[in-house]
């Protein structure tokens, strides 16, 4: 796909501003800094070379040292006054400052004083430079977590150490295991530790509020290649899997939030205001818990076995209330 003209313009101007006073810079270094290929850098230099002020005579143009460029070095000799870096647009500044504020307030950052300090100083410098009040957008990342667990997990991540976890899963089964942590993901108001589980011999995602205890071990964490999964990963991937069995729920409008917060395969508005949600569920215990909690707003469930299992659990629970009812 062709690059957008405005994105390229920002880089072209950025290159001139950066190169001004920077001395000769290697093509590869520029490519890495601006996140493009070395070939693109050379194309950008070629474009800059023929750009300038009207008239476009040699003295009007942005100019480079051709000899250096043959040796793979970019050295600017005439900038035509384009030496000032571009300021951030309103949308850019608002989004960046809101993200930094949210990070600064998050438990994962607050768990480490040095880390909180770096985020605070970055936020201060950026707010000062952009001059944006930036209060238009207000983002809060995950809520509460056991401070000791958060501290242990973040320490293990920054020191590259193995962790021992006591964990209770969605089926309410507790286990002990050693894991090599890869990263701490904050998503949908909760924190998740993505790690290599040595007991399971595979990648696992642990919800931090179900980590009962975490201890940093002396062993170094091994690299299992989990860091390279990219920014678009979704922790729900461990719950929703295209090969997993599907379930269809019809929910009253009051439980519409369920459709908005679970990894739905499809969501359909029905004429009476209710909503039909199709899910793929790898973990049946998770679905049973969801249905127990939201039963008053569940209109129907399929497949029927799921409904039968939930109903049986609920009847057992009601019996327990009968047994333990206050006189």
């Amino acid at each position: 796909m062709a690059e957008r003209a405005d994105d390229r313009l920002v880089r072209l101007l950025g290159l001139v501003a950066f190169l001004d006073g920077a001395g000769p810079v290697r093509v590869e270094e520029l490519a890495e800094r601006f996140g493009v290929t070395p070939r693109q850098v050379r194309e950008d230099v070629d474009a800059l070379w023929v750009s300038g002020t009207p008239g476009y005579m040699p003295d009007d143009l942005i100019d480079f040292d051709a000899f250096s460029l043959d040796g793979g070095l970019v050295s600017i000799t005439q900038t035509r006054g384009m030496t000032r870096p571009l300021r951030l647009g309103t949308r850019e500044a608002v989004a960046l400052v809101a993200a930094l504020r949210a990070m600064h307030a998050s438990p994962a950052v607050q768990a480490d004083r040095r880390r909180a300090g770096v985020v605070a100083s970055a936020l201060d410098k950026l707010s000062a430079a952009t001059g944006e009040a930036a209060s238009a957008v207000d983002v809060e990342l995950a809520g509460e977590g056991d401070p000791q667990v958060v501290a242990a997990v973040t320490e293990a991540l920054s020191a590259g150490r193995r962790l021992h976890l006591r964990y209770v899963n969605a089926a309410d089964v507790t286990s002990e295991r050693d894991v090599d942590p890869a990263r701490l993901v904050t998503q949908d108001g909760a924190m998740y530790l993505v790690a290599w589980c040595l007991r399971a011999g595979g990648r696992r995602t642990f919800r931090l509020d179900r980590v009962l205890a975490a201890r940093v071990l002396d062993d170094a964490a091994a690299d299992h290649g989990l860091a390279a999964e990219g920014a678009d990963e979704d922790v729900w991937a461990s719950v929703a899997d295209a090969r997993a069995p599907s379930a269809t729920l019809v929910l009253a409008s009051a439980a519409r939030w369920v459709a908005e917060e679970v990894p739905a395969e499809s969501v359909r508005d029905l004429p009476d205001g209710s909503v039909e949600v199709r899910l793929r569920v790898t973990n049946p215990a998770w679905l049973r818990r969801l249905l127990l909690a939201n039963a008053p707003d569940v209109v129907s469930v399929s497949p029927p076995q799921v409904a039968e299992e939930v109903a049986a659990l609920a009847r057992d629970a009601l019996a327990a209330y009968g047994r333990t009812a206050n006189p």
Partner: peptide
């Protein structure tokens, strides 16, 4: 209890559809 009462009837819900 309100949630559990509803859940106990959830397997009958689909027949009458709400």
């Amino acid at each position: 209890v309100r949630r559990l009462v509803a859940a106990a009837g959830i397997d009958r819900a689909q027949a009458a559809h709400g």
